[in-house]
Design a protein around this nucleic acid. Structure first.
Lengths: 186, 186
DNA sequence: GAGTCCATGTAATTGGTTACATGATTCC
DNA sequence: GGAATCATGTAACCAATTACATGGACTC
């Protein structure tokens, strides 16, 4: 149930149309809560019906026309309540560890290539995060700055740490798979 | 589309009934691909209809009775194909970074407690993983051992690394939130 | 005015979650 | 033989994914 709250956050940062939100999700908040444009449009409809956001009056209400939304007080209140609420972490679901365990039973054939490919993906994403950090937080993690900037920096740093985790672990996994394949145990 | 493959893996490791699978998911493979008993029963039905598994003949086919399943050659082939196939990582969806960003806009009220709670959850889970590692892989990561054991160890070590990541990041986030709250910027 | 992209949607399907139902077994 | 628990399921719902549809703007 976080998509509406991710959208409220994005709209508070800057009122936007559905497509603008989609683009911003692709390169910012969506790193941590991804969403397609279909999800976003559906959720915008719900939020509007719930009275949490409204279309800016200047927008043309035609089908093909842009519609920009802004957050209403009720939406901000809802977001504040959600931020403070207690919520369990959602259960993890990642295919790669499962594939490694499957390979432990049916053999590692083809797995090294796939691990290498994922390693490369995560390396690229880490580079992206670092580029964003250099652009948006040039003063580094311990710079003073206001509360908002520091929190956003912490979030981005979470992305950096996460990708670093993947890169290290995939390296370990690759090493193990290669060792098994060269020693011919497979 | 990994649940059937997680189940095939578990069944290859050891033929089991639905409830046994549910329990094993709760303390092993489900750390990386969680599933409830309803999902598991549904998937067992599908896998049986697809000819990938079959109920062991010894099992009683009554409603309340246990039914143990084993993997058929077609199921093993399917699992091997899936293990080697190319597959994109599924998009990330985690609420905590979103909540931090929301807090950057609506304030950090209540967030520190929640971060502390999550930190404790991850610490406990890390301790669980380490206990399992000490029990199942007492010789450490560089021990010789067979291919299967080494791969399983790599998977578990992924869990350890993952929890370590969370603990470190949550620590950083907590520090930032506390700094903001004590300096009264909120 | 045909073709292409831009922007907003609808529809169908799948996977996951929550709540409930029912037969078998065990324990007193 | 009644209650609790074990084990297997069904049903309804919701979120996410995939594929497709439609109106408008811009371009040649």
């Amino acid at each position: 149930m976080s998509l509406p709250h991710a959208i409220l956050t994005a709209l508070l940062e800057k009122p936007s149309s559905g497509l603008e939100l989609t683009r911003r999700f692709d390169k910012s908040i969506g790193f941590f809560w991804s969403a397609t444009h279909q999800q976003i449009y559906r959720e915008l409809g719900r939020l509007e019906r719930a009275g949490h956001i409204r279309a800016l009056p200047s927008a043309a209400p035609t089908r093909g026309g842009r519609k920009a939304y802004e957050v209403l007080p009720a939406g901000r209140a809802e977001l504040a309540a959600w931020t403070a609420a207690s919520d369990e972490p959602r259960p993890l679901r990642d295919a790669l560890p499962v594939r490694l365990r499957a390979a432990a039973v049916v053999g590692t054939e083809g797995l090294a290539d796939e691990l290498t490919r994922h390693l490369e993906l995560h390396r690229r994403r880490l580079a992206d995060y670092r580029a964003i950090a250099a652009r948006d937080f040039p003063e580094g993690p311990d710079a003073p700055g206001d509360a908002r900037t520091r929190l956003q920096h912490v979030v981005l740093d979470g992305g950096v740490r996460m990708e670093t985790f993947w890169i290290e672990w995939l390296g370990e996994a690759l090493e193990a798979v290669r060792l098994i394949e060269t020693s011919g145990e497979d």
